[in-house]
């Protein structure tokens, strides 16, 4: 009987689940350039390969994190270089539609319709993401439960707190079971308990999804990420595990934790402490 119990949680496997993936990396950028606004190159010659797991995108404000995430979400078109998502190049427009069905995206400024209930909004997003009609109610319920909002699902968004709205944003990002999940500053506005819960959710999602989390909080990276990408002035400064990042710093560097010291060591290099901020 115990044997059976274990197997009950598994669901049927379709041919699509068993098909081999035709790509090595979910995200692969070579010499990627992306403009923010008309002229400024916010991402300038980035080489990056990301696979399954949770990648923390760290960098100071203005480093180009949001621009990079928007390019990965196919909202911005690359100005140069190549960007392949799930083995398809984002520069051919014909591919966008199929590709976007498999991407989940939480923008930094998460805009929503205040008069919608949580369920209505997530359902609307599921419709925009072309989730098959028959699967929508279940997918919405699953997403809302995963972010712990099942008991508030029928309340209007304008009655929710900032942290809850952020969780609605995460729910809409995961409603289509994305292969690439892009979260821009997901921990903003969450209280410490909610942050812990989010890290747990990220770890769960990271087992079979390529999750990219942009953050400026070093401790989020330590707790939830399998991989760290350090990014400054549109270029890759460092890619490795959180352990590697910690190892890069020494006692002479600024910071309260090994990771923070690694962060400041890699970002500031020899000219330490340039500028007061």
């Amino acid at each position: 009987m115990t044997d059976r119990k274990e197997h009950h949680s598994m669901s049927a496997i379709s041919a699509a689940d068993l098909a081999p993936t035709p790509y090595a990396w979910q995200i692969r950028a070579t010499g990627l350039k992306v403009r923010a606004g008309r002229t400024r190159l916010a991402v300038d010659g980035l080489d990056l390969s990301l696979g399954t797991g949770v990648t923390g995108l760290l960098g100071p404000n203005g480093a180009g994190k949001t621009t990079l995430i928007r390019a990965l979400a196919t909202v911005l078109r690359p100005a140069g270089g190549s960007l392949e998502l799930l083995g398809r190049s984002v520069t051919d427009r014909g591919e966008h539609r199929a590709l976007r069905r498999r991407i989940g995206y939480l923008p930094q400024e998460f805009g929503y319709y205040k008069r919608f209930t949580v369920r209505e909004f997530v359902e609307y997003m599921a419709w925009l993401k072309e989730v098959p009609k028959a699967d929508v109610p279940a997918a919405v319920q699953r997403a809302v439960e995963r972010v712990g909002l099942a008991d508030r699902a029928d309340e209007r968004l304008k009655t929710l707190s900032g942290g809850m709205v952020r969780r609605v944003g995460i729910a809409q990002a995961i409603v289509n079971d994305p292969a690439i999940l892009l979260l821009d500053e997901p921990t903003v506005g969450l209280d410490p308990a909610q942050r812990l819960r989010l890290r747990q959710l990220l770890q769960e999602l990271g087992t079979d999804t390529c999750v990219v989390v942009s953050t400026h909080l070093v401790e989020d990276v330590a707790a939830a990420c399998t991989d760290v990408v350090l990014f400054d002035e549109g270029r890759l400064v460092f890619q490795g595990t959180p352990g590697d990042l910690a190892a890069a710093g020494g006692p002479e560097h600024v910071g309260d934790s090994p990771l923070e010291r690694g962060y400041s060591a890699l970002l500031q290099g020899p000219e330490q402490g340039r500028g007061t901020w």
Binding site: A73, T74, V75, H96, R97, A98, R100, R101, I103, Y105, P107, E109, F110, G111, Y112, M125, W127, L128, K129, E130, Q172
Partner: peptide, 9 residues
Amino acid sequence: ELTASTPRA
């Protein structure tokens, strides 16, 4: 911004 990232956009 959300709508622009969806396949239906």
